[in-house]
Simulated scan of single mutants.
Amino acid sequence: MPTLAFSVSTTASSVPALDNYFKESLNTRDGLPHNTINALAQTADGYLWFGTWEGVARYNGREFRIFDRSPETGLPDVGVRTFHLDQHGSLWIGGSRGGLVRVKEGNWQAYPPLGVLINRLLLDTQERLWIATEGQGLFMQDSLGQRFQYLRADGLPSEQVHSLIEDNDGRIWVGTSDGLVYLDEQLRIIQPMMPAPYNSVPVFALALNEQGQLLVGTERGLFLSTGPTAEPITVLNNVPVSALLFENADVLWIGTIDRGLLRQHGGKTEELDIGQGLPNNRILALLLDGENNLWVGTNGGVFRLRDAPFSTFSTEQGLAGNFVRSVLSHSDGCLYIGSSRGLSRYCDGVIDTIDLSAVSVTGSRCSA
């Protein structure tokens, strides 16, 4: 059935509906080595990087180049679990068998492997590399390459470490399979003093908002922490969160373990899942590229969302009817839309229906 589609400009307060985004999926049929996309990154040269269980895929927008185990890469195994793009523009790669590689301006530098799956990497402001592992705790590699290990005996709630972030005060927050802790300036492991819903549960994702407050994504929901001793605020309850990404101060993208992709804006939570084109409901990574494309790593390939130049309006958005016969741009700044079921007016992002029985005509000027 015909609907109305036209170009609209968006402002900071105007966010396109999810249904109006251009959607595209890429998978092994398009050249990816594997459909599980564990990690996403974009380097300064514009290349997009996808980490998979069958190697690293570099994408130039048209084709993929695959990097796997070889003397060039130094990777001990093809499986790649995580990326970290540091403040110097280097791309760190962590592998399924503990491979650790840094890529800078096309040069691959391998470090001694750890022999265990690496879940996350973080180069902090003190140039210390933090390495989260699956079963051997947390490692810190200093600028000289020396490594120090943190285990349960040192205060970790679990030796399965899933997430890392540095806050604005230099604290290193560590999400484990059994709760959240942080390291202070003396690199001592501290547990948050306030009892919190993210204690004793898997913490998979961490992010900082514009105010420097910590968002904590867990198996049981999403929570906002305003400080180590503050009582957390529940943002989403009973939603298993796997990835977090701020598009800007107002828009938060949330990847979930089994419920697809969520977007929060203006107090509203929207959902996009396989029924709306997502290749798989398990989200593993999120990336906003330099052109504001959102890339979503899933278990079924990579998914791209781009703000389309056109928005579509139908009766679901408030049109009187879906069969549009005429459109008029008025000097009052509104758009008037005539359909088989009446006249609608589009003003300031809002569609309403005009009651023609209440309209008077004076000369060529109409007023409602």
Rank of each mutant, 00 (worst) to 15 (best):
T229M: 09
T234D: 02
V216L: 04
V239F: 07
G297N: 11
P192K: 01
L286Q: 00
N293I: 13
L288V: 04
L244W: 07
V296P: 05
A249W: 12
T256L: 05
E271R: 15
L252D: 05
W295Y: 08
V203C: 14
L272V: 08
D289Q: 03
G300D: 13
E271K: 15
P195I: 06
V296E: 05
P232V: 06
N281V: 09
G301K: 03
T234R: 12
E291M: 12
N238K: 15
Q213V: 04
Q211R: 15
G217S: 08
L287P: 02
G277V: 04
P197A: 10
R282T: 11
A249S: 15
L236G: 02
G267C: 13
I274A: 15
Q264N: 14
G227C: 02
K268V: 15
Q211C: 08
T269K: 03
R304G: 09
L222P: 00
Q191T: 14
M193L: 10
L206A: 00
V241Y: 09
W295G: 11
Q264I: 11
D258I: 01
I190M: 12
D273V: 10
N280R: 12
E291H: 14
D289G: 09
V241W: 08
R282S: 14
L214S: 06
A308E: 08
T229E: 06
V216W: 00
E291D: 11
I233N: 13
K268C: 06
P192Q: 03
D307C: 11
N280Q: 13
A249D: 14
G290P: 08
